[in-house]
């Protein structure tokens, strides 16, 4: 049911009945390494191209979620999938052997929240009994599309973020079992004129602020009602800016705020500069670690606000700024 201004309350409280994550080598060596269902030391996953490796990673996350929830493919009524690549090739490649109705999404790094929101709305409105939300990213496939060849010797700036090689899948059903999805807020395009493609955090912070504050206002909740406000991958720069933006309203979110881009890697030991990014970053943190904690009850009320910098190399070279977006999904144990 629409509350207002993009916030939708899900009255039937759909559940995330199964979830799984799959990550590459660097992510498995990070602080959350033990949380993930699947890790690999070989980021090619035996495929001939990085795009196919990413598809495979997405497939692994999806199939693991199916088996963890004892689902068969026939049980899934619709699949919302997305990634960073042009035409969402990793998602369609990953889904091509299934016969599941497929919706491809692009929301840059916000795609996990976008797909989870849509899957929950489908289940809540009885358009589906079980809906899957799958997203992935791969460092090498993203690097060659958006930046430079992998072996090119470039220096990254301190504000640059590292695209995660990771995938996550959540299956939303109309069962009664935590984590529940209480409400979602659909993001708006926020463009604050950031043109630096090496500073995605800055491009996304305004969108995160907009969506989170809208969600709080529309659902009449306070920051203190949450155990965790989890942004997608703002990294260090974007997280600092988000806190600063809230501080201007007299709201301190630092006690409950965390960021997937800061959680996935050990920034002291791993050379990721401002933190992780990519659709797979928030997907793997959510599906590898946060959903489990909500299911077990250690986290009671979580606002997951994945953020995306909708960066196109073409538009960026034309001198245009990078629009940001953030979608929010409120998950709770009760």
């Amino acid at each position: 049911m629409l509350i207002k201004d993009g916030t939708i309350a899900l009255d039937s409280l759909p559940s995330v009945t199964a979830y799984a994550s799959a990550v590459g080598k660097m992510e498995s060596e990070g602080p959350l390494g033990k949380c993930f269902d699947f890790t690999t030391q070989d980021n090619t996953l035996g495929e001939v191209s990085w795009e196919k490796s990413e598809s495979k990673l997405q497939q692994i996350a999806f199939n693991t979620a199916l088996s963890k929830g004892r689902f068969s493919q026939k049980d899934i009524d619709v699949m919302f999938a997305g990634d960073l690549l042009n035409q969402c090739v990793s998602s369609s490649g990953g889904a091509k052997d299934t016969e599941i109705p497929f919706v491809g999404l692009f929301g840059a790094c916000s795609t996990m929240a976008e797909s989870l929101a849509l899957a929950s709305i489908f289940v809540d409105s009885k358009a589906a009994n079980n809906a899957a939300a799958v997203t992935s990213s791969h460092f090498c496939s993203a690097e060659r599309q958006f930046r430079f060849p992998v072996n090119y010797g470039g220096q990254r700036t301190p504000t640059a973020q590292w695209t995660a090689t990771a995938a996550g899948c959540a299956i939303v059903s109309s069962h009664c079992k935590p984590p529940y999805i209480r409400s979602v807020t659909i993001g708006k395009i926020n463009d604050m004129g950031v043109t630096d493609a090496n500073n995605m955090g800055a491009a996304m912070a305004a969108a995160a602020y907009d969506t989170i504050s809208r969600h709080l206002a529309n659902t009449a909740q306070q920051v203190s009602d949450f155990d965790l406000i989890l942004t997608g991958d703002l990294g260090q720069v974007g997280s600092d800016m988000l806190k600063e933006l809230f501080k201007r309203d007299g709201v301190d979110i630092s006690a409950v705020h965390n960021d997937c881009g800061l959680m996935l890697y050990d920034r002291e030991k791993q050379d990721v500069h401002a933190g992780g990014s990519g659709c797979g970053c928030s997907a793997s943190v959510l599906c590898g670690c946060i959903l489990k904690q909500i299911e077990q009850g250690t986290l009671k009320n979580v606002l997951f606000a994945a953020t995306g910098a909708l960066m196109s190399p073409t538009i960026n070279q034309q001198g245009e700024s990078i629009p940001g977006i953030s979608h929010a999904v409120q998950l709770s144990a009760q």
Binding site: K25, F139, C140, V150, N151
Partner: peptide, 8 residues
Amino acid sequence: FKRGDKTS
């Protein structure tokens, strides 16, 4: 040569 992988 094989294509590179910065992540491993």
